[in-house]
Design a protein around this nucleic acid. Structure first.
Lengths: 216, 216
DNA sequence: GGAACTGGAAAGCCCATGGCTCTTATCAAT
DNA sequence: ATTGATAAGAGCCATGGGCTTTCCAGTTCC
């Protein structure tokens, strides 16, 4: 005779984790899910399965899936930003080295990663319909551009401020375009070729003749 | 007393269209749907509602939603390519004008269109999980790069072939990056600024000193 | 010219999955 | 031992895609 009485199905044991651990687990699961399955394949059940928790927890810690995705966007953006800053910090004191390290970091892990692009694309795809996502995008892009602008002016103080802004936008665009295509289809050109193009563009920006700061 | 007998609900009238008309209507509806609602909001019912047909027709003309999205990708890609070629054809005979027209076309309608980007992003998001989409992407990107390469060499025949390839990749990356950000958030810089950057990059590519074709 | 025929088109159906809620079980701290 | 927050899991309702059935507009044949 079985010991367990019918009608009282045993429930899975669980460990009680802190809110931070749970949130982080859900965020990382969301990033993985977006990367591997895209927006369409990202659902409450899949995310929670990835995180190893039950489906109910998502709503408990976040205001629904959209809020979790937004939190994931912020988290991923911060991690990428941190990786870039680390690269700059490790580059030493020379301003040109620091600038180059910043640009170069886009073509090294963890930034150059098809999974990261896949996650990023998911955010882009929500940009149009989700104002909070759009705001986060603007914030992230602005931060990158500003950082690059600062590094540019430190490496070439003679560049007028408006020129530095344009140069930062142009360099960012080129880096983004190369990064995008490399992640989408790495067979069209190599990382080395991309680095060569970016280096040439950087050299051009740093050395092109200006007439703003001295003449006028 | 009502004239209509119970149990015989009247069915919507319909007009019989040719297969081409129906396919095109579904493709255009899909593009609109992807643009306005993103991948997540693109379903059989929504597409067919946009196209003004019943839900069953999608399966009748295409092998499911995925096949329709792929067909939409091909169609949109062809339309963009045609618009670019038209711009080149209207530019006249001067090779430099033709090259510039090609680059410039990326920042004019119908290419510079947030809806087009939204559609495009949807395709990117499927790139990882859908081999057919990935193949179409490679084809489209390769076609653009080759076309640009040809225009480059016509405008500057002294450029060695490998250099032209790299220049085409770099210019494409820059254009793509600027186009992407302009469509995502048009408040960060203007179309004129983007055109200025691209023009400067083009001039640099065309006029930079080479040592390949004459010396060696 | 009328009636059967063909195949395009519309609804409805089925089952799976969507997000979210609610109840209940479990754990850790008091 | 008690308690209150935390987690699990079932359940609800809406929507998903694909399929089937029913219906209708041209076509064809007599």
């Amino acid at each position: 005779m079985e010991q367990k009485i019918e009608g009282r199905p045993e429930r899975a044991r669980f460990v009680r984790e802190s809110a931070d651990v749970r949130r982080q687990a859900l965020i990382e699961a969301t990033a993985r899910c977006l990367a591997e399955k895209g927006v369409g394949g990202t659902s409450v059940r899949v995310i929670c399965a990835y995180a190893g928790v039950s489906a109910g927890l998502l709503t408990h810690y976040f205001d629904g899936v959209d809020a979790l995705i937004l939190a994931t966007y912020r988290d991923v953006g911060e991690k990428v930003g941190a990786a870039m800053e680390r690269a700059v910090a490790e580059a030493g004191p020379d301003p040109r080295d620091r600038l180059w390290a910043y640009l170069r970091a886009n073509f090294q892990p963890p930034v150059l990663d098809p999974n990261l692009l896949a996650t990023w694309i998911s955010f882009w795809s929500l940009n149009k319909t989700n104002p909070a996502i759009a705001a986060t995008h603007a914030e992230t892009y602005g931060s990158v551009r500003e950082h690059l602008e600062v590094l540019l002016r430190e490496a070439a103080p003679q560049i007028p401020r408006p020129d530095a802004r344009i140069a930062a936008i142009g360099l960012t665009a080129m880096v983004d375009g190369l990064w995008l295509e490399l992640c989408l289809d790495s067979s069209t050109f190599t990382i080395q070729e991309a680095l060569g193009m970016v280096e040439e563009a950087m050299n051009y920006v740093l050395s092109k003749p200006r007439n703003g700061s001295i003449d006028q």
